[in-house]
Nucleic acid binder design. Structure first.
Length: 260
DNA sequence: CTCGACTCCTGTTAGC
DNA sequence: TGCTAACAGGAGTCGA
């Protein structure tokens, strides 16, 4: 599914429309417009404007417009970014492998004839005009060990639930969290504040390695844990049967042997 | 502020 | 073969 890694791939893809003038925007699905954003507002902000930049914070993709407004794009669990005829990502875990244009929830047409679309079967993504970027924590790709120590590795909440909290650190989704904790040999259920300094350093190191590996390999479904992330799966490191639990409201796989 | 529970969405798939 | 229920998770809300 789209996590920070996929959205970074989307952002690079969206660079193709930087410098282009928007001719029209289309938001036929009101449900897809978030936090009071209306189709009329989006049109007023975007139509005739030039895309000056494509940024990303966590799972939020931002298009900076020459009107001074910012268009925030979210992809939920199954959203793809399509520019022209090409999808930024062909394979998305948990999403349909079909490619039905009726799933286009939002799109913009440029003066040049180029198009940019969000194709989202399950409608869990959304579009928001001028989203509050301050609600998000530091981006996972840039997060420092100090930020991890101060913001994430605190309190009694389960460590994994903390990693999924976008206000603490932005961009970590379920698969990135499971793979990172598996590699770092940390139990996702242990309290976040129980980590010692060596644990924090290890978590930080593995998080960055996981993000780099996933980006290189094409997505958050490319982890070593992923193939065995099924009921009855066994740990690739030591062969122990994996635990399947719900932590932070998400299905969580971890190794009872080496994740402590 | 903290934190768990609940809700939303719908294509896919397992099971009967 | 056809139906139903379970499942997936990002993100928001609510209440203790």
């Amino acid at each position: 599914m789209p996590e920070g890694v996929e959205i970074e791939m989307y952002r690079r893809y969206a660079d193709r429309v930087v410098g282009l003038e928007i001719a029209s925007t289309h938001a036929p699905d009101d449900w897809f417009l978030k936090r009071g954003t209306t189709a009329a507002e989006v049109s007023a902000a975007a139509d005739g404007a030039v895309v000056e930049g494509a940024r990303r914070i966590g799972k939020l993709l931002l298009l900076d417009l020459s009107s001074g407004d910012r268009l925030g794009l979210r992809f939920g669990m199954t959203g793809r970014l399509i520019v022209g005829d090409e999808s930024a990502i062909e394979y998305l875990e948990y999403s349909s492998q079909r490619n039905d244009p009726s799933w286009d929830r939002f799109w913009m047409v440029f003066r040049s004839g180029e198009e940019l679309r969000i194709r989202d079967p399950r409608r869990l993504g959304g579009v928001e005009l001028n989203p509050d970027e301050g609600r998000l924590g530091p981006d996972a790709f840039q997060v420092t060990v100090g930020q991890l120590r101060d913001r994430v590795v605190v309190g009694n909440m389960a460590l994994k639930a903390r990693l999924l909290d976008q206000g603490r650190i932005a961009g970590v989704g379920n698969l990135i969290a499971d793979e990172t904790l598996w590699r770092a040999s940390l139990d996702p259920a242990r309290s976040a504040g129980s980590l010692d300094e060596k644990d924090v350093q290890r978590l930080h190191r593995h998080l960055h390695k996981v993000l780099a590996d996933f980006l290189r390999d094409g997505g958050s479904h490319t982890g070593r844990l992923q193939p065995v992330r099924v009921r009855g799966g066994h740990c690739p490191k030591d062969g122990a049967e994996l635990l399947r639990r719900e932590i932070g409201g998400r299905t969580t796989y971890s190794c009872p042997e080496h994740q402590r």
